[in-house]
Deep mutational scan, measured.
Amino acid sequence: ELIWEQYTVTLQKDSKRGFGIAVSGGRDNPHFENGETSIVISDVLPGGPADGLLQENDRVVMVNGTPMEDVLHSFAVQQLRKSGKVAAIVVKRPRK
């Protein structure tokens, strides 16, 4: 059984690379294997702001206090874009 651990990460936006993450998932883009609608970190740019803080497959729980459960992919992207220079991101990942 999976035990999820929650992490809060504060990312500083890089002028060229943004937050250095890509997200997939969302209500309109469920996971191809299990139908899960979570917003998921799909890519972490090496050397970017999120490197060492976020991991691929982290589930995004909140962005700047806005819940990311059962939202559209575009909504999640929009929340990240409009967060200015700093984003507080809450993620969960299975305990190893």
Score class of each variant (00 low, 15 high):
residue 93 R to S: 03
residue 7 Y to R: 12
residue 70 D to S: 10
residue 3 I to H: 06
residue 35 G to P: 04
residue 51 D to Y: 11
residue 23 V to M: 12
residue 96 K to P: 09
residue 10 T to R: 11
residue 88 A to F: 10
residue 54 L to Y: 04
residue 32 F to L: 11
residue 53 L to Q: 07
residue 25 G to E: 04
residue 8 T to A: 15
residue 62 M to K: 14
residue 7 Y to S: 10
residue 26 G to A: 02
residue 61 V to C: 08
residue 10 T to N: 12
residue 17 R to A: 08
residue 15 S to Y: 12
residue 78 Q to W: 07
residue 17 R to W: 14
residue 45 L to C: 09
residue 13 K to F: 06
residue 59 R to H: 08
residue 16 K to N: 13
residue 29 N to L: 08
residue 91 V to C: 05
residue 52 G to P: 04
residue 19 F to G: 02
residue 94 P to A: 10
residue 30 P to H: 04
residue 75 F to N: 06
residue 70 D to Y: 08
residue 59 R to A: 03
residue 71 V to A: 11
residue 14 D to S: 10
residue 42 S to G: 14
residue 76 A to P: 03
residue 86 V to T: 15
residue 43 D to K: 11
residue 82 K to Y: 09
residue 76 A to E: 02
residue 31 H to D: 15
residue 87 A to Q: 01
residue 80 L to M: 09
residue 58 D to I: 03
residue 7 Y to A: 15
residue 76 A to W: 04
residue 20 G to C: 05
residue 69 E to A: 13
residue 6 Q to H: 10
residue 76 A to L: 03
residue 21 I to R: 00
residue 11 L to F: 01
residue 17 R to V: 13
residue 43 D to G: 06
residue 46 P to G: 07
residue 4 W to M: 14
residue 18 G to S: 14
residue 89 I to K: 01
residue 89 I to P: 01
residue 14 D to C: 07
residue 13 K to E: 09
residue 66 T to P: 01
residue 81 R to P: 02
residue 27 R to I: 13
residue 13 K to P: 12
residue 77 V to D: 12
residue 54 L to W: 03
residue 9 V to T: 10
residue 78 Q to D: 05
residue 18 G to N: 12
residue 79 Q to E: 11
residue 3 I to A: 08
residue 22 A to M: 14
residue 69 E to V: 08
residue 85 K to G: 13
residue 90 V to H: 06
residue 27 R to Q: 13
residue 31 H to G: 07
residue 32 F to W: 05
residue 8 T to E: 07
residue 70 D to G: 10
residue 52 G to L: 03
residue 19 F to Q: 01
residue 10 T to S: 12
residue 14 D to K: 05
residue 42 S to N: 07
residue 1 E to F: 14
residue 93 R to Y: 02
residue 64 N to C: 03
residue 43 D to C: 08
residue 71 V to D: 03
residue 96 K to H: 10
residue 39 I to D: 03
residue 31 H to K: 07
residue 47 G to F: 07
residue 48 G to N: 03
residue 71 V to P: 02
residue 28 D to C: 04
residue 4 W to F: 13
residue 50 A to L: 00
residue 41 I to R: 01
residue 62 M to G: 14
residue 18 G to F: 06
residue 96 K to D: 06
residue 60 V to R: 00
residue 23 V to A: 01
residue 54 L to S: 02
residue 44 V to Y: 00
residue 41 I to Q: 03
residue 86 V to K: 15
residue 42 S to C: 14
residue 53 L to R: 08
residue 87 A to D: 00
residue 34 N to D: 13
residue 47 G to Y: 05
residue 56 E to D: 06
residue 49 P to Y: 01
residue 53 L to H: 08
residue 69 E to I: 13
residue 45 L to A: 11
residue 10 T to A: 10
residue 50 A to N: 01
residue 86 V to H: 12
residue 86 V to S: 13
residue 34 N to Y: 05
residue 91 V to P: 01
residue 68 M to D: 00
residue 71 V to Q: 13
residue 91 V to Y: 08
residue 64 N to D: 12
residue 3 I to E: 09
residue 26 G to M: 03
residue 95 R to L: 10
residue 72 L to Q: 14
residue 91 V to D: 02
residue 40 V to E: 03
residue 28 D to Q: 06
residue 21 I to S: 00
residue 91 V to N: 01
residue 34 N to F: 04
residue 61 V to N: 03
residue 68 M to P: 00
residue 64 N to Q: 02
residue 57 N to E: 06
residue 23 V to G: 00
residue 93 R to D: 00
residue 50 A to V: 00
residue 21 I to P: 03
residue 65 G to K: 08
residue 5 E to Y: 04
residue 49 P to S: 05
residue 62 M to H: 04
residue 24 S to P: 01
residue 45 L to R: 05
residue 60 V to A: 02
residue 35 G to L: 05
residue 13 K to Q: 13
residue 71 V to H: 03
residue 3 I to T: 15
residue 53 L to G: 03
residue 92 K to Y: 07
residue 95 R to M: 12
residue 24 S to K: 12
residue 77 V to G: 04
residue 23 V to P: 01
residue 11 L to S: 01
residue 6 Q to R: 12
residue 93 R to E: 01
residue 41 I to D: 00
residue 53 L to D: 03
residue 29 N to A: 09
residue 71 V to L: 03
residue 81 R to G: 15
residue 38 S to I: 02
residue 44 V to W: 08
residue 76 A to I: 02
residue 84 G to F: 07
residue 34 N to R: 14
residue 28 D to K: 04
residue 77 V to R: 09
residue 62 M to E: 09
residue 7 Y to K: 09
residue 25 G to V: 03
residue 16 K to R: 12
residue 40 V to A: 07
residue 81 R to K: 13
residue 50 A to F: 00
residue 18 G to T: 10
residue 32 F to T: 13
residue 85 K to E: 11
residue 23 V to I: 11
residue 69 E to R: 11
residue 64 N to S: 03
residue 13 K to V: 05
residue 68 M to G: 02
residue 49 P to D: 04
residue 30 P to Y: 04
residue 58 D to V: 01
residue 19 F to Y: 07
residue 86 V to E: 10
residue 47 G to S: 07
residue 16 K to S: 09
residue 63 V to W: 15
residue 75 F to Y: 14
residue 89 I to F: 11
residue 75 F to P: 00
residue 54 L to K: 03
residue 78 Q to A: 13
residue 33 E to P: 13
residue 59 R to E: 04
residue 21 I to C: 04
residue 43 D to N: 12
residue 53 L to E: 06
residue 78 Q to N: 13
residue 47 G to I: 00
residue 49 P to K: 01
residue 70 D to R: 06
residue 43 D to Y: 13
residue 88 A to D: 08
